[in-house]
Nucleic acid binder design. Structure first.
Ligand SMILES: [Mn+2]
Ligand SMILES: [Mn+2]
Ligand SMILES: [Zn+2]
Ligand SMILES: [Zn+2]
Lengths: 145, 145
DNA sequence: AAGTGTAATTAGAATAATTCTAAATTAATT
DNA sequence: AATTAATTTAGAATTATTCTAATTACACTT
């Protein structure tokens, strides 16, 4: 579980831009999220982290996740009041929660969709973030010819 | 604090469609949310409710809000991990949270925007709900001539 | 190398929104 | 009136997250 040289540079630069240190724990958590591209909760990340870094604490998980979000390396995803989930996909995209399985899917969206949305805001509203969350079910595809 | 005859009918019909009873408490909470068109939390609704119905309990607030949401009379609004807020506006719209004041604004959107969003989903994804949340600041309009 | 200062990590306690439980109340039905 | 089912209620329980205070790690100076 470790970062490619390319991501290591991205990681260090993002943190140093905010004068934060690229610590072992921060890198460990970042690499875990990057390498398994789902949308884990803090607690899932805690469990996965301890497999290879048994001494890490839950408080550190929360601290590091906050740091990674603030540095722009990962995104938070919230559905209703469920635990916050974390997402390494930095391209513009929406999220779809399947209410049958609980799985969250990335839905890629062209930048134009976000631009259109912004056009509907009053001129003095200045959005910093736009979250688009779908909620529904996924129909099984019929595979019989 | 009470419902117009038109809304009283809507209220009764929506509940009876799910074989739920149009109780005093449910009507009280619904009218509070309808008459002050902001986005109150359960706790704010609790405080407002007790002004005219001092014996209502917080558990009832939560129970009634859940019932009203399930009946389609109000919507839930969630930003990050903040307390859930409730919205009486049933037209298609998005929400904008001003991070300076904490105020949530309704942003009306034409149905076409939601249709466009749906077009970007894989064909077997069947959305039941779409939440669009903006997060940012609101620039003061310069009123000097 | 030892000492200093600051940031990060850690364990565990605290918080707070929400949900749960079980009893009491209400309202409809026989 | 008695029976039943739904709703309300008070208070306890839950749980994700935040907070606190102590420890550790590490860069920089002496
Ligand atoms: Mn994402
Ligand atoms: Mn709304
Ligand atoms: Zn994602
Ligand atoms: Zn609204």
């Amino acid at each position: 579980m470790h970062l490619s040289p390319a991501y290591k540079t991205i990681f260090k630069n993002a943190l140093e831009k905010s004068s934060l240190k690229p610590t072992k724990q921060r890198e460990h958590i970042f690499s875990l999220i990057l390498n398994k591209k789902d949308h884990p909760t803090a607690d899932e990340i805690y469990t996965r982290s301890r497999e290879t870094m048994p001494s890490i604490s839950l408080a550190t998980i929360y601290n590091c996740l906050e740091t990674l979000v603030e540095s722009g390396l990962i995104r938070q995803v919230n559905f209703e009041r469920e635990s916050t989930r974390y997402c390494p996909n930095l391209k513009p995209h929406a999220h779809f929660l399947c209410k049958d399985t609980g799985t969250i899917y990335d839905v890629d969206l062209p930048a134009s969709v976000f631009d259109t949305l912004k056009k509907h805001l009053p001129k003095n509203f200045q959005p910093e973030q736009i979250d688009i969350n779908f909620n529904g079910s996924i129909k099984k595809i019929n595979n019989n010819s």
